[in-house]
Structure formats: structure tokens, C-alpha cells
């Protein structure tokens, strides 16, 4: 068994070098496909995480018009709180809202422009937390019910819908592209191994004549395909490692607050998926090739 493995691996490596140009072309296409795969994985899981984060923070904001009396605001608040889909409602006065605004601006390192205006331009608001972030029910209608109280209602439903749309499109487009590139890679591997089989025709003939079992004839070629796949996977992972800094930033942009361990999980996922895909595509392509070009049963006619 060990002898067989050593033989098959040695022959696979020999075959890879002997077929240099084809092997290289196959490896490069493999790298391109695996890059696409990894990219799709990174973007979609970052988006997913971002989406989850947004959903967990979902709240409806109702900005109150200038000069509306506190009683009316309190009344509205009570109405909204009575709705079954609402978890809690908090009121933020103009002053509190200004403080919040200043705090976020300072945290972001921006200059506080509100100091220039002299008056407070930030409106008071009601923050409504929902029990289920996707069920808005009558919240919006209730808030806009009493005329003149609420200036504007902002809910994240639209944002979430848009994000969902974007991720959906990205995922579908990505999968289509991935399928096309994957098929191309498969065909290239099939062709590469076919060339390897052809270039070893004489050896295969002799192997069969001297009584080599099918395993000895076939497995070196399958290993050669796997070699192309794994080499492509390692090159891909190497390139990704080099680009990990910008990728990390990209992920952070897509999902403002990444949960702890996210990057590590993603890294593990990417490594697994890239290695697995390379291995499978290489092996599958080679098996198809070997099955097609090495099959020969003696006929009776």
C-alpha cells in the first residue's frame, strides 16, 4: 500500500512537470476560480453578519416637530407602547439628542459643527424597540396618526430589504459565475489529465502488458489532478493571506460591528472551502478523464 502510494505520487509529480504548460494553465485557472469562491464567501458572510447586526439593533425612530407639547408626545408614546409588536419606547429630548450627536461626532473625530449654529438643530425623538425586528405592524400608522406631532418616521425596514436584495443578487450572480468558472476549471483539468494520459500512452501499454493492475495505471493520473487542485488552493490561500489586511477592512466596512471571532471563523471557513474545492475539482476532473480515456474492455466482436 505504501509502495503503491509512493509510486502513484511520484508518477503524479513527474506527470505534472512533464506536462508543464498545461499543468500551469490548469493551476492558474484553478486559482482564479478559487479566488472567486473565496471572495464570494467573504463578501456574503460579511454581509450576512452585517445584516444580523442591523436586525438586532432594529428600532423605529420618530422625530418630533419643534414646539409640540410634552403631553401630546406622552400621549403618542402611550399609544405606541400599547401596540402588541412594541417592546419598549424611550423619549429623547432635544438636549439629550444633541449630546448624543456630539458624542458620536467626537468619537468619529469630526469637528462639532453644532457649536456654530447657536440654536439646537437636533429634534427630539421617540425610540421604539420592536419585539420582532421584522414585524412592524401598526407602529408607523400609529406614530403618524395625530397630525403635526411627528416630523418623520425612520424605520430600518427599507434598509434591511435593500440589504437583503443586494445579498440575494450578489449570491445568485456569484453562484452563476462560480458555476461557469467551476465548469471551465473542470474541463481544463479533464484536458490536462487527458494530455498526461496521451503522453504516457506507451508506458500505459507496457504497464498493461506486464500485468499492472488498474489502480497502478489510474491513480497516478487522479493524484495528478488532485495535485493541480491542491496547488491551486495553496496559491489561492497564499494570495489571500497577502491580501488579508485590505480584505479585513472590506469586511469591516460591510459589517460595521463584527462579532468577536468572526474573522477567525471566516478564515477557517475560507481555508476549508478553498482546499476542499481544489481537491474535489482536481480529483473529479482527473477521474472523468481517466474514465473516458483509459477505459478499454476487450470485445468479442
Amino acid at each position: 500500500m505504501i509502495h503503491f502510494l509512493a509510486f502513484a505520487i511520484k508518477r503524479a509529480i513527474q506527470g505534472f512537470w512533464r506536462n508543464g504548460v498545461m499543468s500551469l494553465a490548469a493551476t492558474i485557472t484553478m486559482v482564479l476560480m478559487l479566488m472567486l469562491l473565496a471572495g464570494l464567501l467573504i463578501v456574503s458572510s460579511s454581509l450576512q453578519v452585517g445584516l444580523d447586526t442591523i436586525e438586532s439593533k432594529v428600532e423605529v425612530l420618530a422625530f418630533i416637530n419643534e414646539g409640540v407639547s410634552e403631553e401630546r408626545v406622552e400621549g403618542l408614546r402611550a399609544d405606541v407602547e400599547a401596540l402588541p409588536e412594541v417592546a419598549s419606547v424611550t423619549f429623547t429630548t432635544k438636549e439629550q439628542a444633541l449630546e448624543e450627536f456630539r458624542a458620536t461626532q467626537a468619537a468619529a473625530g469630526n469637528e462639532d459643527l453644532t457649536r456654530i449654529t447657536g440654536t439646537n438643530p437636533i429634534p427630539a425623538k421617540l425610540n421604539i424597540k420592536l419585539k420582532d425586528p421584522r414585524v412592524f405592524g401598526q407602529v408607523r400608522e400609529t406614530l403618524l396618526g395625530p397630525p403635526g406631532v411627528v416630523q418623520e418616521v425612520i424605520d430600518t425596514q427599507e434598509t434591511i430589504d435593500e440589504l437583503l436584495g443586494v445579498t440575494g443578487v450578489l449570491r445568485t450572480a456569484g453562484l452563476v459565475i462560480l458555476a461557469v468558472v467551476g465548469l471551465t476549471v473542470l474541463l481544463i483539468v479533464v484536458n490536462t489529465i487527458r494530455m498526461a494520459v496521451m503522453s504516457r500512452r506507451d508506458e500505459i501499454e507496457i504497464m498493461r502488458l506486464v500485468g499492472a493492475s488498474d489502480g497502478f495505471v489510474r491513480w497516478p493520473f487522479i493524484f495528478e489532478g488532485v495535485l493541480v487542485g491542491l496547488l491551486g488552493a495553496f496559491v489561492t490561500l497564499g494570495l489571500l493571506a497577502l491580501a488579508s489586511q485590505p480584505i479585513g477592512q472590506l469586511a469591516r466596512v460591510l459589517a460595521a460591528h463584527l462579532p468577536p471571532g468572526f474573522q477567525q471563523n471566516l478564515t477557517q471557513q475560507v481555508i476549508g472551502v478553498v482546499l476542499g474545492a481544489g481537491f474535489l475539482l482536481g480529483g473529479l476532473g482527473a477521474s472523468i478523464s481517466v474514465r473516458t480515456y483509459l477505459r478499454r474492455e476487450p470485445g468479442t466482436g
Binding site: 509502495h3 509510486f7 506507451d202 507496457i206 506486464v210 500485468g211 499492472a212 493492475s213 497502478f216
Partner: peptide, 29 residues
């Protein structure tokens, strides 16, 4: 089996050509 055209592997030496038949049939090194 012996053929008119020998069917030897040109890149291998005499020893390797003979050893090849043993290698590919799983004979321990």
C-alpha cells in the same frame, strides 16, 4: 510478451526498463 518493435521506454535505462515491470506491479523496492 516480446514484440518486434521491443516497446522499450526511451527515457529509461536498460535497468529501469526491466525494473519498471516490477514497479508497476507493486513489487517492494
Amino acid at each position: 510478451i516480446v514484440f518486434q518493435d521491443f516497446k522499450l521506454l526511451p527515457a529509461r535505462t536498460v535497468r529501469e526498463n526491466v525494473a519498471f515491470a516490477l514497479e508497476v506491479t507493486g513489487t517492494p523496492g
